[in-house]
Write a protein that binds this DNA or RNA. Structure first.
Lengths: 163, 163
DNA sequence: ATATCCTGGATATTTGCAATCCATGATTTT
DNA sequence: AAAATCATGGATTGCAAATATCCAGGATAT
């Protein structure tokens, strides 16, 4: 069981987009360069975030990405859902309905308790992720950030911001 | 993100092994046949469960598998860990340390808040799974089982039990 | 001795993720 | 109008892990 790298990329990008001035955007190229990751692959995930209504994209020169709503209203779960999909990690194959002791399908209308247990655990996972917003992350990042890192980031952003 | 099918197989097998009489065992072939799944692949997972101390295996004729301890003392989490491994689903690649705004590694001694958030969610997932035992699952299965299914299973087990 | 069963390794096969490339369309600048 | 910049979406490739099978070797009961 493994989350795709795109989740980490998406959350980091959202956190960076949360600190740029209102009215400005960052192109995908800049987001990839800032994080030292593949540009062509990152934009795939940025597209997913845009389709999910988490980001807004502007085409053309002076184009790029920005958050679609305040960082405090974007949960980490929303980003994970957009990139990983909403399928549960556990996919019940209903093997209880197979084999020599199986009966007709109508008998199995009640959900398998094993499936229910796994889904309950995923609900707990989702609840935890839903309790964290991008704004929370930015706060955490800022609190433990070295002052030089902040300045270095701001200086770098200066030449990439659009709008 | 997807859990391997082996998890479902392992939990179902543990549930079945929880209801066979004390002192008896079931061979891997019977466990695979009962669930209508691949025998050669299932035994791989049964080996993992044995190595984890969840099952005990007996070689030779009259051999097979049985639970290593009471079903009430085997959590679903233990089975998941044995089959999926204990690696977290989120693997922080520390991309905050990459790119043009990065500083020397010593600056990043404190854990990344994004990583912390993801790990906290996995803790909630694990806590939920740790709260469920195989005995709980058997209880749930029995309560909603059709009486004919129980009889059919018992009759089928009659000819496969060893010991 | 023989038959049965677990063990562990070697080996395909398949799936999904990671990554790249390109043609297209939108928008700003010149 | 032309050129440059950027997002979009599809096609394709490479790769690692999960899935699945097979077989030789060791243990045990009949």
């Amino acid at each position: 069981m493994k989350l795709s790298d795109g989740v980490e990329w998406g959350v980091h990008c959202a956190a960076l987009l949360a600190v740029i001035p209102a009215g400005t955007v960052l192109p995908g190229k800049a987001l990839a360069e800032y994080h030292g990751i593949s540009e062509s692959y990152l934009v795939k995930h940025l597209q997913a975030l845009t389709a999910a209504g988490i980001l807004i994209s502007i085409p053309g020169p002076k184009g790029g990405y920005r958050l679609a709503r305040p960082a405090a209203e974007i949960t980490v779960l929303a980003i994970v859902d957009a990139i990983e999909g909403r399928d549960s990690a556990f996919r019940c194959a209903e093997i209880r309905q197979r084999g020599p002791a199986a009966l007709e399908p109508a008998v199995y209308r009640l959900p398998c308790p094993i499936n229910a247990t796994m889904l309950r655990a995923e609900m707990a996972w989702r609840k935890s992720l839903r309790a964290q917003t991008v704004a929370d992350l930015v706060g955490g990042l800022a609190k433990r950030a070295d002052q030089r890192a902040v300045e270095k980031t701001l200086a770098w952003l200066q030449e990439r911001l659009r709008g």
